[in-house]
Computed example of a mutant assay.
Amino acid sequence: MARIDFAPDGLNPPHTHPRGTEILVVVEATATAFAYDLSLLQDFCVAINDPKVFVNGKFCKNPKQVKADDFLFKGFRYPGNTANRLRSKVMPAFVDQFPGLNTLGISMARIDFALGGLNPPPTPPHETAILVVAEGTLLVGFITSNQINNTFTKILCKGDVFVFPIGLIHFQLNIGKTPALAFAALSCHNKGVITIPNAVFRLKPPISADVLNKAFQVDKKVVDYLQAQFWCDNN
C-alpha cells in the first residue's frame, strides 16, 4: 500500500502499473493503493451476467459497449445498517456489485461498526485482505495454521493498516467508545468468505451433532443449543 497526500489542487500525475492493478481509497485527504500481480490478456473485462452458462469468473462485455460508469462504484458513500446482533455491516464491492473489477484480481469492502460491533471470524479461501481504519479503534487479529498455532492481534487506531494472510481465520472488534469505520482491499475480484460460526452451526442440512460433539468436546445438549440459535449474517 501507499499513502498519498494532496495539497490544495495537488495532482498525482498520470502513471501506469505494468505489473499490477490499483485500488484507490480516499479518506479525508489521503489515498491508499493496493496492487496485485496479474498477467492480463486485454485491458479489462467488464463483467456481464449470463444465467445460462457458468464459468470460473464472468463473461466480458463487448469493449465497444463499455462506459466509464462500469469502472465506478458509489456504494461506499453512506454508512451500512449496523442494527443487527453483530452490530456491524459489511458492504462489499465485488464483481457482482462492481462489474469493472472482473478479472482484475482486486475488490473492496466497507465495514461499519457500532459500539461493540464485531465482524465475526471468517476464513477467506481466495484472497489476502488488507484493512485500513478510517474512524474509531478496532481490535483485530488472525489465527495461524496448525503448523504454528498462534494468534496475532493488534489494536488499530485511525490511519492504521493491518494485513490478513490468505486463508487464515480473522476478526475485527470495535473496542472504542465511538462507532468505527474501516475499508478492506482484497486480492480477488469475487467474494470468497466462509464465516466460521455460520458454517459450523447454521448449515442446512446441519453437520452431524456427533461430529461437533467430539470435535468441540462438549455435551450434545450444547451442540443442539448452538445449532438452534439464529446466527446473524452482517453481509
Rank of each mutant, 00 (worst) to 15 (best):
I4E: 06
F216C: 06
F54D: 10
V132C: 08
G176D: 04
A93V: 05
A31S: 11
N213E: 08
R3C: 12
N190L: 12
D112H: 07
G80I: 10
R77I: 13
G100A: 11
I194D: 08
I130G: 01
D9F: 05
F76G: 14
C45F: 01
G57E: 01
A129T: 14
F230W: 02
V55H: 05
F216Q: 10
V193T: 10
H189V: 09
D9Y: 05
S107M: 02
L38K: 05
F113R: 12
F71M: 14
M1R: 09
T128R: 12
D219C: 06
I130W: 02
F183R: 14
L24D: 15
G116T: 07
Q97F: 07
Q217E: 02
F152L: 07
L38H: 04
L168E: 00
K204E: 01
Q172C: 05
T195L: 06
K191P: 03
H17I: 03
A180F: 03
Q172H: 10
A7H: 06
F44D: 11
V200N: 05
K64W: 05
T195R: 08
N150S: 13
L118V: 15
P124Y: 01
D69T: 15
G167Y: 03
G136V: 06
T195P: 12
M108N: 13
F54T: 10
V95G: 12
G20C: 09
Q229H: 02
L86D: 09
H15Q: 09
P13Y: 00
D219E: 14
F183Q: 10
H170M: 00
L41D: 15
M108Q: 15
K89G: 07
A47G: 09
N198V: 04
F59S: 08
K64T: 11
N149F: 07
L203V: 06
R77A: 15
K61P: 07
Q229T: 04
L72W: 14
F152T: 06
K214C: 00
P18G: 05
F44V: 08
V55C: 11
F94R: 15
L139T: 11
L40C: 01
V218F: 00
N149T: 11
V66I: 12
I23G: 13
N49M: 07
F34T: 09
F113C: 06
L24Y: 10
I169E: 00
F44E: 07
N234P: 09
V95E: 12
L138V: 08
P51Q: 06
I111N: 05
L115T: 04
R85M: 08
D210H: 10
R77T: 12
L168R: 03
N235S: 13
T123S: 06
A184T: 15
S187Q: 02
N102I: 03
L101I: 04
C60Y: 03
G57S: 02
L72T: 14
F201A: 02
L41S: 13
M1V: 07
A182H: 11
V25S: 12
F76K: 14
R87T: 14
F59R: 09
A199I: 01
N198W: 01
N146E: 09
T153W: 08
I207H: 03
L11G: 04
A182S: 15
P124A: 07
D37E: 10
Q227Y: 00
N213R: 14
K58V: 04
A35H: 09
P14M: 00
G192L: 04
F71S: 12
Y36F: 06
I111F: 01
